[in-house]
Structures are given as structure tokens and as C-alpha cells.
Amino acid sequence: MRKLKLAHYIFTGCEGCSSTLIDLLVNHPDLLDRFEIVSSRIIGYTGIVESDIALVEGSIMTKHELEKAKKIRENSKLVIAYGSCSYILFVNNLKKLVKDTELKQIYKDNIPAEPHIEPKSLTKAIKVDYFIPGCPPDPDEAYKILTNILLGKKIRYPDKLVCYECRQKNIPCLLEEGKLCLGPLTMMGCGAQCPLYSSPCWGCRGPATEADTDIFEKAIKEIEIDPDILRRKLHMLLGDLRE
């Protein structure tokens, strides 16, 4: 069987996704029998080349990156947004809350060589075929999606909320403890990783289809929450997905 050509591209982000790709290959070495890696800066091959699948991490933050994203689309049969910066912007969406005056103050006379643009997720910048959510994405979920693509199976994303996983695992509800937990808005699939460690969900997998922020805000009225902090958290969770 012909090996599929896999390209890995990185836009602006923390590159934790790259790190999980190494985990993916270590835990599932069979992937190297099915895929030939044709581009990846981490591995040592740079440049945009023709591929069957492009795994793309990071957000589009400069003009140059936007051009590159378009070129990737032209050269790849399938494009997968890998990780939440690529899928919905997530943390990088906070850049939109930084005021212009503050930006000017930062650069003063030294305007950086790379013109920055309003941040875009890959999903908004070009047509994306699939996505692998999470910050960081789960290598096992990535494996499942990649093998399903290989087998020509339909990719299904979980449609339930993180709350569902908390209930399955008998994790005490953090909202009931008065903590701002975004579990009731977030797509499940992470195993309720944060609540499992008594830490509120940040919604890093993006909103579930049924997520309704209005209902959520009404429901949490009893908890004393700083409206500005709530706004920032929802801004990350929703990213630019519903824009």
C-alpha cells in the first residue's frame, strides 16, 4: 500500500502540539508504516510541499502566515486543524482584547518586520476538512481520527459536555463549589482532565454544539463572579468559531 504523505506545519502558538505529535509517533509507531512525513520543521524538512494530509498547528497572526496557509491549502488534499489555536484561536483570541493604544506603546519606534493582522484560526483563514481539538490535543484522539481517515470512515466528534464526563467519574461539581468552571459549555472528550485535578475547566476543546452562553450566564448568577473574568474566559472558549 502506498504510504500517505503527511505534512506538519506550524503557525503562531506555543508548539506544545508539536510535542504531542512526538508522543503520537512514540505511542503509535505503526503510523510510520502508513505515513511518510514530507514536511516538518521539528523533524528537519521545511517548506510547503504536496501532501495527502496537512496537520496544521498554531494561529494565523501575520500576513505572511495567511499567505502560507493559502499555499498549504493548495498543496494538500486534506487539511486538519491540529490543536485549539488552529481550530478556534483559544488563547490567541485574547490578542483581540489588547487595545490598539497599548500596541502602539509597545512598539514605539521599532515596528517589527512582520506585519501583524487580526488573529484568525486556521478554520477561519482557509477551508479546513477536520480538526483535532484541545490544548494540548490528546495524541490518542489524534490517532483515532487519523486512522479513521485512513479507513475512509466518517469522523464523529463527541456532542456531549464535559459535565457528562464529570458525572461518569463522580467528580464533585466545581460550579457548585463556587468556581467558574466552563464544563457546561465545553465539548467532552478530554476525560474531564481539569476537574479531575480539582481545577475548573477552561473550555480548551472549544464549545459543544449545544453550548449556550446565555443560559450558562443565567445559571451561574448565584456565584459571585467578576464579569470581566467571565468575559475573558468565554472569549477564549468560543474563539472565533461562531464569528
Binding site: 503557525f11 503562531t12 494561529s59 494565523i60 497572526m61 501575520t62 505572511h64 502566515e65 488563547v91 490567541n92 485574547l94 490578542k95 482584547l97 489588547v98 497599548e102 500596541l103 509597545i106 517589527p112 518586520a113 512582520e114 501583524h116 488573529p119 467578576d226 470581566d228 473574568i229 475573558r232
Partner: peptide
């Protein structure tokens, strides 16, 4: 040439 991410601004206002 990495895009600018302005974390010190992101953090402002965070609990």
C-alpha cells in the same frame, strides 16, 4: 519572525 502574542497583556486582568 514568529507572530507576536503579547502574553503580558493577556495576563492583565486575570485572577
Amino acid at each position: 519572525t514568529e507572530g507576536i502574542r503579547l502574553f503580558e497583556s493577556f495576563v492583565k486582568g486575570t485572577d
